[in-house]
């Protein structure tokens, strides 16, 4: 029982990271209707920037916020330079461009910072939080940071004019433009925010998986699984989906012999395929209708 509880808590901790990535994916999907396959590599690149800043002697939280700001700007730039020109292009072009971005960021990180595995600092420490050792300080910190982020996003989208405008632009671009919303800028803003969320997720997970150019590929897959499970059209669903996927991963790893431990990525594959086939809209998403 204690083991079960411990694994669920640990699952929720990593689940928060999947939730962040899922949220970033859903924000992009809402804004442009495509899945960003480069989301994980963008987060990885941001994490390397943070690492470089701490190597240069910046205090952790300074590096943290500078990285978030730089990632935000980077996301906006990527949207403006790479995606704006192909916004009406078919799916194939988009997927190809995302894969291109993925390859560029991955090998650029390896080029600039080499492929060796690096430790990444945690501001929370790794001591057990309570005497019974249920959860350590870094895991608790991950959960706290994510909750704070979610609260911030909720307030932003619910109570600010820009948030409202972004929701309008995603929901119905034509009408939004007619009431004077700069839809293009809202999309760019969405990209910036997705990149910033990804950066936070990367910096939070890096102390756990260690820093290297390929560290986010698995995390991205779990993020996709979470986003699909929760529903690609629902930010709240993405968060719940990410948490569920984190818990499933941990429980399977502990209680299913061999498969749970060695086939972690296959579990994500299974979740994605099963959800897409059985219930494509996910837990909280709305079904997509096509007019023939």
């Amino acid at each position: 029982m204690e083991l079960l509880l411990q694994q669920i808590l640990a699952g929720l901790a990593t689940g928060t990271i999947y939730a962040c990535i899922a949220l970033a994916i859903v924000m992009t999907y809402q804004a442009i209707g495509h899945l960003n396959f480069a989301q994980g590599e963008m987060a990885m690149f941001s994490t390397f920037i943070a690492w470089q800043l701490t190597q240069w002697g910046a205090p952790y939280w300074v590096a943290f916020f500078v990285t978030v700001a730089v990632s935000f700007a980077g996301g906006v730039l990527i949207e403006l330079i790479v995606l704006r020109p192909i916004q009406h292009a078919p799916v194939l072009s988009h997927v190809a461009v995302f894969i291109g971005l993925l390859a560029i960021l991955n090998s650029l990180a390896g080029f600039l910072w080499d492929f060796n595995v690096k430790p990444f600092p945690t501001p929370f420490g790794t001591a057990p939080l309570f005497a019974n050792g249920f959860i350590d300080a870094h895991q608790a910190g991950m959960i706290a940071v994510t909750l704070f982020l979610l609260a911030f996003l909720y307030v932003f989208f619910r109570f600010t004019r820009v948030g409202l405008a972004m929701r309008a632009a995603a929901h119905d671009p034509v009408s939004a433009r007619l009431v004077g919303i700069r839809v293009g800028w809202m999309t760019a803003l969405g990209w910036g925010m997705a990149a910033a969320i990804g950066a936070i997720a990367g910096m939070m997970i890096a102390p756990v998986v260690f820093l290297e150019p390929n560290m986010m590929l698995g995390v991205l897959l779990y993020g996709f699984a979470g986003a699909v499970l929760g529903g690609l059209t629902s930010p709240a669903g993405a968060v719940i989906g990410g948490l569920i996927v984190g818990v499933i991963e941990n429980l399977a790893g502990t209680f299913i012999p061999v498969i749970g431990g060695e086939l972690k990525l296959t579990i994500a594959l299974a979740i994605i395929v099963v959800v897409l086939v059985m219930k494509p809209q996910g837990l909280l998403g709305r079904p997509v209708l096509h007019r023939v």
Partner: peptide
């Protein structure tokens, strides 16, 4: 049942999972 980007996603997951399946100890 998966069109366009969903198919890309499912096959992406397959590709990422493949090396792990090949390493499976049994």
């Amino acid at each position: 049942r998966l069109e366009g980007v969903y198919l890309a996603l499912a096959t992406f997951a397959l590709a990422v999972a493949t090396p792990q399946i090949l390493k499976l100890s049994p």
